[in-house]
Design a protein around this nucleic acid. Structure first.
Lengths: 339, 339
DNA sequence: TTGTAGGCGTTATCAA
DNA sequence: TTGATAACGCCTACAA
């Protein structure tokens, strides 16, 4: 079923059918009605590949996600959902590319095969080959997270440094003197993962400013790791009375380890950090945390990208999110006596 | 950058470049070397739209996921990941369509615009418009889950009825007389969601066979709902000593409600069901459950689809998974005295 | 061993 | 108000 078939049945030329479809030139009511009837009857819709070839636009966005194997965190998942949703609102399809560090078949296919009109890159690192690759390709792109040189790209990001800093100040205000940061995994940090490094920087700065004793720990993105991490923390640093974390996937495990140690939150131990609202609320007791506005960020990333696609001369868009800390019930005054 | 440009620079015709790319006819070493050098230098890759138009194949699969708004469960997410992964292995891209009940723009665009070579449908219902639509479109498709009339489609599914039946038998063997099924949400059930209905059927059959007292509850796909659901269960049916569930997203909440009620698992209360291995292991104590082989199912769905795409006459493929119940630590003998 | 040319389904320019 | 036609980039049957 193609446009020629419709034209034939309606007794007009292909171009007229095309114009009825696009509305880009006047077609008499009579003719348009006849054509529309045929279109409706046959449920015709133009072939996307042909249109893409002709227009130079695919009406699709690429979304580069962390490769399988590593399980996506809840936050990553929500980003995917919000991007897909925002794209659908603009009648754009989303092509998923599970691409890790370097040159990946799927990534290359999407980029150099011109399968998409633009790309959203998730979980980028401070130095990221894929960013370089996209820059040289000329394809519009937006990153969720920013590289070490954020002045040359469009991005949305969370101010991990500032937020973790605020968490530390909040804990200090409550009288905590010995605090710990539970960061993302050591591999991720080693690969130059921005949020991890910025969280560390923010933590260190605030700890220094308030004259606290701070411990930093890496932790895998899963419950089991969180559990082990806190066990080790409690054993090695018994004086610690509070945790700040950017590792939401570890939260359930952190919770279990505190339970096992017989510590009641927030009476004996405080915990706070940066997390998706959903996870903060699911925590027991509900987590005092900076709620990452994931849906907003995903939507904004899509909007920036659509703008860049529409106008090649569009200025770079950047948005650093610094949501307030929602006070819930997981932080309290430092316990009087050390454990 | 197109094939003509490569041809010009290499001093050959376009067809020769094309043949070098496809390897479908012999090209002399000298010529091929010269062409390949140009290709490498310019990092040329054929335009996907043009190729799709010419070949009638897009090298992309559509994956229809539940619409945003409803948060994807961990299991759904893993399906997505496994499908994307399996597709990537076959050099296929995956186009995501967040489509709910009926005719959705995104779904229609993918299907009638021929944007994909085939479709994988998630979370289908016993009667599903999208299945009908795909059947009449002639586009190959595979469903994860099956409709009420499973003889006309290709699918992979979990034998929820059989598995929940086994769970009940396991509980009965342990001496439990009063058991509950925690099902998926009421809306999902009302919309004719197969796994929900089949779980109920399996539960009822096993309960009848063993002469037990069985309660069935619907529960939203999130922790909060699980918590409320179990609170109500304990209040309304104090004699219940065990739960079987197909609602893995509710597990954390179920856990919290049991905690709050002061019930120790498995001493005072047993819990089992069907869940992704990951969630079963994350539960405390680790959940005795039928582990849904998600990656295997996602991979098999892709393989069935690829086969159907390759050979239009391919027989329908169906695979009903019935994984064994992994005995972990969340079930034990029924407590002697009722609460 | 390589080249020529037609057509996949669209859209838009030029003509009528 | 409508129609004929070229072009988007690719693949391949046919020719040389």
């Amino acid at each position: 079923m193609n446009i020629g078939e419709i034209a034939k049945r309606a007794g007009v030329s292909r171009s007229t059918v095309s114009y009825v479809l696009s509305g880009r030139r006047r077609v008499s009511d009579a003719t348009r009605g006849r054509i529309q009837a045929v279109i409706d009857e046959l449920d015709y819709r133009p072939n996307a590949s042909a249109r893409a070839l002709r227009e130079g636009r695919t009406q699709a966005l690429g979304l580069v996600i962390p490769p399988a194997g590593r399980r996506l965190t809840g936050m990553q998942l929500e980003f995917v959902a919000s991007v897909v949703e925002a794209a659908a609102r603009a009648d754009m399809d989303v092509l998923l590319s599970p691409s890790g560090g370097d040159h990946d078949r799927s990534f290359e296919r999407i980029v150099s095969g011109r399968r998409v009109d633009g790309v959203i890159l998730m979980e980028i690192r401070l130095e990221d080959d894929r960013v370089t690759r996209l820059q040289q390709s000329g394809l519009p792109f937006v990153t969720i997270g920013r590289t070490a040189d954020p002045h040359t790209t469009s991005w949305v990001d969370v101010d991990y440094a500032g937020l973790i800093g605020r968490c530390v100040h909040h804990l200090a205000d409550l009288g905590h003197r010995h605090v710990a940061l539970i960061n993302r995994s050591a591999e991720l940090l080693a690969s130059g993962y921005g949020p991890g490094h910025r969280a560390t920087a923010g933590f260190d700065a605030a700890v220094a400013e308030r004259g606290l004793d701070g411990v930093t720990l890496s932790c895998g993105d899963d419950g089991r790791s969180g559990e082990m991490c806190v066990e080790q923390l409690l054993a090695a640093h018994p004086q610690v009375t509070a945790i700040a974390t950017v590792n939401e996937a570890a939260l359930p495990g952190i919770r279990r380890a505190l339970d096992t140690a017989g510590l009641v939150v927030p009476r004996d131990f405080s915990i706070t950090g940066v997390a998706a609202q959903h996870w903060a609320e699911e925590f027991r007791p509900p987590l005092t945390a900076a709620d990452v506005p994931i849906v907003e960020m995903g939507t904004e990333a899509v909007n920036l990208l659509l703008a860049a696609i529409a106008g090649p001369g569009t200025p770079l868009g950047r948005h650093l999110y610094r949501p307030p800390i929602s006070l819930r019930s997981s932080t309290g005054p430092a316990p009087r006596v050390s454990r």
